[in-house]
Design a protein around this nucleic acid. Sequence first.
DNA 1: ATCAAGTTTGACCATCCAGTCAAGAAGCTT
DNA 2: AAGCTTCTTGACTGGATGGTCAAACTTGAT
Lengths: 216, 216
Amino acid sequence: MPAPRLPIAEKPGSARKAPRSRIQKRNREIILDAALEVFSTHGFRGATLDQIATQAGLSKPNLLYYFDSKDAIHRELLTRLLDTWLDPLRMLNPDGAPQAEIMAYMRRKLQMSRDFPRESRLFANEILQGAPRMEAFIRTDLRALVDEKAQLLQAWADAGRIARIDPYHLIFSIWSLTQHYADFAPQIAMIRGDRHEPTEGAEEFLEHLYSRLLAP
Amino acid sequence: MPAPRLPIAEKPGSARKAPRSRIQKRNREIILDAALEVFSTHGFRGATLDQIATQAGLSKPNLLYYFDSKDAIHRELLTRLLDTWLDPLRMLNPDGAPQAEIMAYMRRKLQMSRDFPRESRLFANEILQGAPRMEAFIRTDLRALVDEKAQLLQAWADAGRIARIDPYHLIFSIWSLTQHYADFAPQIAMIRGDRHEPTEGAEEFLEHLYSRLLAP
DNA sequence: ATCAAGTTTGACCATCCAGTCAAGAAGCTT
DNA sequence: AAGCTTCTTGACTGGATGGTCAAACTTGAT
């Protein structure tokens, strides 16, 4: 016996896969952008639906018409982030020139800190809190990718094509040095003066650093 | 006309400077330790007094007998942190051997990530949120110290005693690379396996990195 | 123009949470 | 032991906050 069709309209944020109207597409994007702004600076608990609603220019009940809950908004942001978070490392090409490949990876990560600082801070907030909502992703997808690329780096080192350094620490160093310019941007601005862009001079510095570090 | 002495006992957490009893000293330390644990993983807004009270093994009203407010506990933690946060950089000795001095600074910072990871995360949380409670400190004390030491590093570079690199980015890189092992410890543990210590192998890697980076 | 579906919101509720208070328990001093 | 101070806590309050709901408004297909 099939479940009877409910006369009540489903919430668009629910599991429904039906196509979305223009208004829905637009407002969901507006909400996610506002939520990214608020979550990335205040963390999940520190953010309130009222803040997000104000930032989005919508009413709080309207937010909850588009998403089932505060948690659902946050989950959607993280899900979208994961899609793009692995890409720069994934692009590390085993058939390319080792040094150039690693430098290019570093540059892609630095570019992400410039283009998506809020996403970087959202991620940092999540890890700081013990990665409660990303543990599965990190232990499976991210770990597998890192293991794979670490093997590649190790092979390059063994073949004498780059210096003999620990591949995991090499990857961590790229994450650390590039994301720092997004995550600690307020500190950098306060020290260097608020006029400058946080990554000013970073690319030259990091290129210098990695070309010296990697030379066999 | 002098203000009349109130018959009500002042709260010990207040501005009073009178000496504190053994019980007060002990419980204030217990509370601060518990609060550091909770604030460093959940941030200020994410932490609750009940969590801190449970962690401390005390009742919530008892917490507020020793500190005026949640904010006062947090402020005290930050105040104590600032005292020790500048020390490693302050110890950079203008009369020492440039490379050895910078390596020693890096090692001191790495040691702080090992010994005080919670303090590092407390600091990171604060910066991520725009440093609302540390702006004055960063703009004055920290900035002055960084400017002073950047000048020293620049002088060393100009004299050809270390490589010609941007001194600010050099300092940022040390902060970034060392604190990463504290702030992103959960991620590192999930990738490398929870058995290992997060900083395992870090010292060798960073020594290799900075000896290559700094060589003139 | 009509009307059903989709969208918006004011008013509301339940829960959580920082902080209060008065009364009692434990320590200290004599 | 008495009496004072310090310490502890159960019960409470007021405000914030995530979430609900029914009614009103808008949109778009016919």
